[in-house]
Design a protein around this nucleic acid. Structure first.
Lengths: 356, 356
DNA sequence: AGGTCCGTTTAAAGCGCTTTAATAGGTCGT
DNA sequence: ACGACCTATTAAAGCGCTTTAAACGGACCT
């Protein structure tokens, strides 16, 4: 670790420098509150009140202070405010910056947080930065609450984190008595997809699985139940897979073997893989095969792909997550809540009635 | 604006509470440096030294302090450190969280920054948060230097920002005597694409333009020069467009009208639009038309798309950006630098020799 | 003994802001 | 004229940490 500054504490006998405060204002010293105060001829406390639009100061001083601040180009040092204020008004978000769904959520959360007077601090996962590291980083920043997008760490750890400060887990089903959860009803989403296909007249509706994991199993369960609900239990076909394009590519021939006329993929990436392989195998979509994805990712929206899929309602999830934190922080709620949002089927061009 | 805490400054005559410091440690009060010090039976200053691995403390106290810190679950308050330290070791990054290329850059920057002992603070653009707002947010956090990814604000503003603190603009050509620039040689990248196609035997190589903007004009210039260089000045065909899929979709028929056998698109999104429309028009890629994109985005890498494209070397740009800041901050460099990285052609499956 | 020097340790002064109790000046009633 | 009671303002005490000068206690010389 490189030493933060050049001077080793106990080495060179440094000449006695004058204390920083009485030093001549360096060319580039950032103006401080006291500078504004001096210029306006009032006390620092008053300046603080004025700049934060607090009641108290008279109109006249208010104007003088604002003028002085403007002239000096004053900009409050947030670090110092944070320290002095009891509250930081910061919410931390742990996300994977390369995940487009996360990105979408964050953008919406930022808007929602701003509306409530909070600021977001982002901490991203990278190959060299795991969930805990990212989280601790946020704690160091004095975040008052945390939002973890699609957390994968042990439930135990999450729970103990939730005992320290308000924490919202987004997108992962999780039973814990210390933290809040926002997620979409994945089983319901798949059910909607199946209902849509069944409504079009399909009976041989297959499902490409998403592998292990809470999300995948919810979707699988949704598929099973929906098929049963439509009297298609016999036609249930679960093709092993995961959440990558690769899985879709592998699943495509299997689909044809099994004479499926429609398929629900565990997510959009997988569906895109399916579309690709099907095209190469000469199977027309949607004429000979209907395909439904899951996530309504940017991928699905490409004119090029135009995939019928299930939307997870990112704006809704974002809004709810922020609301949950605000409830804990501002209204003193203590008991955990779980918000389950209904997904929404987005009809595009990859589904149609089966060939006669 | 909701008042941050419940007590209005001049209202109810609050009973004289004891000062916070002497209050009984609340159940959930986060342990402070002084708590650790008390527990270890030493002074706060010493604890500070130990926890930051500074020379001075004896082995024995070092052990005692670490033990005490561990027992209390002590975690330094970064806000307070920042305030007390002269340097924050923070670098701010302004990015658009929904842009995958930005995301990739950020991930790489984070690694590079960590290696040099800096921490990244992210500030994202949203529809309700423009470049200046995002930037000012970072300044409030006491960032020592700033990285602006693909900044679009006026050069004048950027320049004056650069006079306040070290600033690196990434991905935008920009002449300014106050800030550093990292970018890829876009003209060279397009030239490589043209050379590749010419090498395969193509002569009618068209270009779908990216519209106005520095980046687009660099690429256009690269195309023109390269065509001339290959003795194909006569075959130069610039089809108007922009950086969206839509542009590619519109350009495709035009391409066929003009009897092009190959095309370089101004970016990947545009290329994907092209691929889509070409497929619907019954033109096989690469058999009847070769297509090259630009950016090597995730889009291009999808098995499904598998687009030959030009990579902008995100890791390289990220590394250079961090290095530039480190040079300014740690080595005291003052004169501006511009780093231009060579792009790299990535061969995939959308290019082939022309049909005989 | 007395002094010097060393490695350790501590007390105290900040960092730049917020907050609160106290103060200063009015106005008003009697 | 006096106290009561406003409102506008200030001084000062923190927030939790870092940093510096000064203090301490040996060990080691003369």
């Amino acid at each position: 670790m490189p030493s933060p500054d050049g001077s080793s504490p106990a080495a060179a006998p440094t000449p006695p420098l004058p204390p920083v405060t009485s030093a001549p204002p360096g060319r580039n010293r950032r103006p401080r509150l006291s500078d504004v105060a001096a210029r306006a001829g009032v006390s620092a406390g008053l300046v603080s009140l004025v700049l934060r639009h607090q009641p108290g100061p008279s109109e006249q001083t208010r104007a003088r202070v604002l003028e002085a601040a403007r002239e000096l180009g004053y900009r409050a040092d947030r670090t110092a405010s944070l320290l002095a204020r009891r509250r930081s008004q910061h919410l931390g978000v742990v996300m994977d910056v390369r995940n487009t769904f996360h990105a979408e959520l964050v953008a919406e959360m930022d808007a929602a947080a701003t509306r409530r007077g909070y600021d977001l601090v982002l901490s991203t996962l990278t190959p060299t930065r795991d969930e805990r590291t990212a989280t601790e980083n946020l704690l160091d920043f004095r975040c008052e609450g945390l939002i973890l997008i699609g957390p994968e760490d042990r439930a135990g750890w999450l729970t103990s984190l939730g005992q320290e400060l308000p924490v919202v887990a987004v997108g992962r089903r999780l039973k814990s008595d210390s933290l809040d959860v926002v997620r979409a009803a994945d089983d319901l989403g798949v059910a909607q997809a199946v209902a849509h296909l069944a409504g079009l007249g399909h009976r041989d509706i297959a499902f490409v699985d998403g592998g292990r994991g809470t999300i995948a199993s919810d979707r699988r369960r949704g598929y099973r139940q929906a098929m049963r609900g439509h009297g298609l239990a016999e036609q249930t076909r679960i093709i092993p897979g995961d959440h990558t394009e690769e899985a879709g590519i592998r699943a495509a021939p299997e689909l044809l073997n099994r004479h499926a006329t429609a398929v629900v993929a565990s997510n959009d990436r997988c569906a895109v893989g399916l579309l690709d392989r099907l095209a190469r195998l000469g199977t027309e979509v949607p004429a000979s095969m209907s395909v439904v994805g899951y996530d309504d990712s940017m991928l699905a929206r490409l004119g090029h792909v135009d995939l019928t899929t299930v939307s997870q309602d990112a704006p809704g999830q974002a809004e709810e997550a922020i609301t949950l934190l605000a409830e804990r922080l501002d209204d003193g709620r203590a008991e955990p809540r779980e918000i389950v949002l209904p997904p929404r089927l987005v009809l595009r061009s990859t589904t149609a009635p089966p060939a006669p």
